[in-house]
Amino acid sequence: MKKYKVKYDRSAYLLVLPYIIFFLMFVAYPLVFSLVLVFHRWDIVTPMQWVGLKNFERLINDPLFFKSIINTLTFLLIHIPLQITVALGFALLLNSKIKFRPVFRTIYFLPVVVSGVVVTILWQQLYSFDSGLLNKLLMVFGIPRIPWIVSPEMAMPSVAIMATWKNVGIYIIMFLVGLQNISAELYESSNMDGASRVQQFFSITLPLLNPTIVVVLVLSTIGGFSLFIEPYVLTGGGPMQSTLSAVLYIYNQAFYFNHMGYAATLGFIFAIVIFAVIMIQKKAVEMDPTV
């Protein structure tokens, strides 16, 4: 038998060349350059100044850096449970025998396709203390008005509610797909074992939706650390820096104060924090016997 010889398709290199160029310019160079930047002070115009570890030293003494991480975690702590509950609730409703399912699905998905800027301008009105529709609605029911985005305690939760409203459509559909993939036989056999609806939900539905929950966790975490336009338009990071997000802080350092080195350092550390948070979440979900 003839020795098998691998045939290489040389034209492949031509096909992947654009990616190589793209990778070198927009991935490799920025990564290397960010490693250079974190050791420098630079205003982008005059020559770079080597500062050693000073950027990191500044970072650990910078209350706003920690504040922006706490803000993001606050956002995630509210946003993720809210998102999962609401999405799962509507997915269960849509999965039952109902008419007009496509109509409801289309409407629930609407905020997902619309730009975050539109959503934020809209919610700025809804959240307005004096003239906002939400507070007007509360007053109709005799509930005292809520200082949605003007109180340091309420502002981040308000951003999280808005983000949930915007994104939950995707997760409703994802959960719906997940629910439709669960075979009916599983429920039938557990029916025979005399399991209640609630027991079924926790023993069958939830565990089988685990992959979707992981997706929600990961995407929301990335989303939380990418938060920019919502606080930029809605609150400018206030009140009292309570909505200062990681990206907004990078933006301010780089483009208000022209500290490119420090902004790159922030980006570097935030990237590590994102990785860490996602790893912790994955471990937690895998270990948790209830999910």
Binding site: F23, M25, V27, Y29, F33, I44, M260, G267, A271
Partner: peptide, 22 residues
């Protein structure tokens, strides 16, 4: 490499990419 690229958060490349444009 492509899968790895997908995992890089944009926060880390944002400033250097802007610098590249400049």
């Amino acid at each position: 490499l492509i899968l790895f690229t997908m995992m890089i958060p944009f926060q880390i490349t944002l400033i250097p990419q802007y610098v590249l444009m400049v």
